[in-house]
Nucleic acid binder design. Structure first.
Lengths: 134, 134
DNA sequence: AACTCCACGGATGAGTATATGCGCTGAGTA
DNA sequence: TACTCAGCGCATATACTCATCCGTGGAGTT
C-alpha cells in the first residue's frame, strides 16, 4: 500500500516544508530525516524532475521546496513513486468480484481504500510542516 | 500492508470453505486458486501447524478446513503471515508523533487503520465461502 | 511386498525494492 | 587557475519476498 520510498519522499518534503526558502544540502536532509544519503539523492532527483523541488549546485547549494507546490496534495507525490495503483480488483482477489457477485470483503475494502485516498488528497505538502503553536 | 503470501492464504481458506468436509489435494487447490503448487504447499503447511487446516497423507489425502475455525476472524490468518504488525508509529514516520505532537496525518491514518483492522476482525473464515443465494 | 499418491522439509533460485560507490560536472571561493 | 563543495548519473551490491526443485516418508491399493 505504501512503499519505503514513498514514505521517504513525504518525510523529505516535510523537512523541507519546515525550512521554507532555505537551501538545505543533501547531507543535512539525510541526517535530519535518517534516510541513507545516496538513496536520498535519488529520491530528491525524481522530486526535482517532477517540479516539487528546486536544486542548486556548487558551494552553498542544496535543495528547497518550490513554493508553488505547497498546495498540492501528497497524493501526487505518492503516485509518483507508487505508480498509478490499480485497485480495480479486490484486496484478496478472492475470486471474481464485481457488482453482481461482490466478495464478502468488497464493501469493507472499499471503505478502507476510500479513507486512504481521502487522506492523501486532503493533505497538502504545506500541511506537512510542523505547525508550532504560538 | 498486505503481502502476496497473506492474500494467498485467504484465497486458499476461501476455496476450502467452499468445499466443507471435502479433502482437496494440493494440486486441486493450486489449480483452483491459481497459486503455484509448490509455494502453496508451504502456506498450507503453516496453516496446518497453526490449526487452521487438517491434512491427510497418502492416497485420497489432501487438506480440509478445520470446522472449528469457521468462526475465527481472518485477522488471525493475516497476523500469522504478516507478523504482529507494529503500527504504533505513524505512516510516514514524519517525525515524533505522539498524543502531544500529532503529525498532520495522524488522525487521518488512524481512521484508515481502524477501518482496515475492523474489516479483518469482522470477517470470519466461514464468511469467505461463496454464499450462493437459493 | 511392490507400487502409486501425496503431504512434508530443506535447499536453492529468481525478481524486485532498497541501498551504496564512484566518477563527473557545475558553482562558488581564494 | 587551483581548490572545494555539492548535485548528478550510472553501475553495482544487499536484502527480502516470492517461487521452484528435489528428496523423504507416510498411507492406501494391488
Amino acid at each position: 500500500m505504501l512503499s519505503h520510498t514513498g514514505r521517504y519522499a513525504i518525510r523529505i518534503l516535510g523537512h523541507l516544508a519546515d525550512h521554507p526558502g532555505e537551501m538545505l544540502s543533501g547531507t543535512e536532509i539525510a541526517g535530519a530525516t535518517r534516510i541513507p544519503a545516496n538513496y536520498l539523492a535519488k529520491i530528491l532527483n525524481q522530486l526535482r524532475k517532477r517540479g516539487f523541488v528546486e536544486s542548486q549546485k556548487g558551494w552553498g547549494g542544496g535543495f528547497a521546496l518550490r513554493p508553488a507546490v505547497l498546495g498540492v496534495p501528497i497524493a501526487d507525490v505518492i503516485d509518483l513513486f507508487e505508480g498509478p495503483q490499480d485497485h480495480s480488483g479486490c484486496v484478496f482477489e478472492l475470486r471474481e468480484c464485481d457488482g453482481q457477485h461482490p466478495c464478502p470483503l468488497h464493501e469493507h475494502w472499499e471503505k478502507v481504500r476510500t479513507s486512504y485516498r481521502e487522506m492523501l488528497s486532503s493533505i497538502t505538502i504545506g500541511n506537512l510542516a510542523t505547525s508550532r503553536a504560538p
